[in-house]
Design a protein around this nucleic acid. Sequence first.
DNA 1: CCGAATCCAATTAGATACTG
DNA 2: CAGTATCTAATTGGATTCGG
Lengths: 114, 114
Amino acid sequence: MKKDLFGICPYATTQKILSGKWTIYILYLLKDEPIRFNELLRRLPGEMTHATLSRQLKGLEESGLIIRREYEQVPPKVEYSLSAIGERFKMVLDSLEIWGFEYIEHMKASEAVS
Amino acid sequence: MKKDLFGICPYATTQKILSGKWTIYILYLLKDEPIRFNELLRRLPGEMTHATLSRQLKGLEESGLIIRREYEQVPPKVEYSLSAIGERFKMVLDSLEIWGFEYIEHMKASEAVS
DNA sequence: CCGAATCCAATTAGATACTG
DNA sequence: CAGTATCTAATTGGATTCGG
């Protein structure tokens, strides 16, 4: 197993990285500023729990897209931010956003017909 | 349930559409030309079966990104191609490809250090 | 050739309780 | 505040078989 295209094909590699259910949304939230754990949780749709968020953040960190910075404080403070390669991912986010809006408009238009 | 952001937020919407394991790769393959079912299967990594491909294609078709065209022949011939909104998705694929290559290089460089 | 149906295995998310 | 651990439920993929 794992005679994978990961690390070879850019499409397969990216698909793998984005495989979580909230990954794109998380990256979008971190686009402009570092955000703390609980603040991320608040900004995400209400459905997800902190256990899920924790896992996804860990995955993105292992993929190298985000950086976890822990402040030595009581109470604890942890900030997540984009890494260098994560910053570069913004170009994908931008085109994704443009297309996403187009898609939504397109779908509404189709529904209106039916 | 399903007080979803699908159809509202471009990121959540796109994440949902791309949720399959091979979706991005399939869209990439269809980027330039219509391709028949078995030809798609051949071009995809050997791991996947035709049942899986069939499901993913159906999903992408239901999402409106691709079009299934069936020729009235014996033996059957079915071609898949990008729809109008699927064509527009190429801009995402392009940035994804660029970033994917950067990411792969970046990872190799990191490994080399360790 | 294309694909639906079924079954099973693997993965992932959600809920909850617990910790420093 | 920011997690981990554990369990369960849901989703998805892979393998196989069957059908027009």
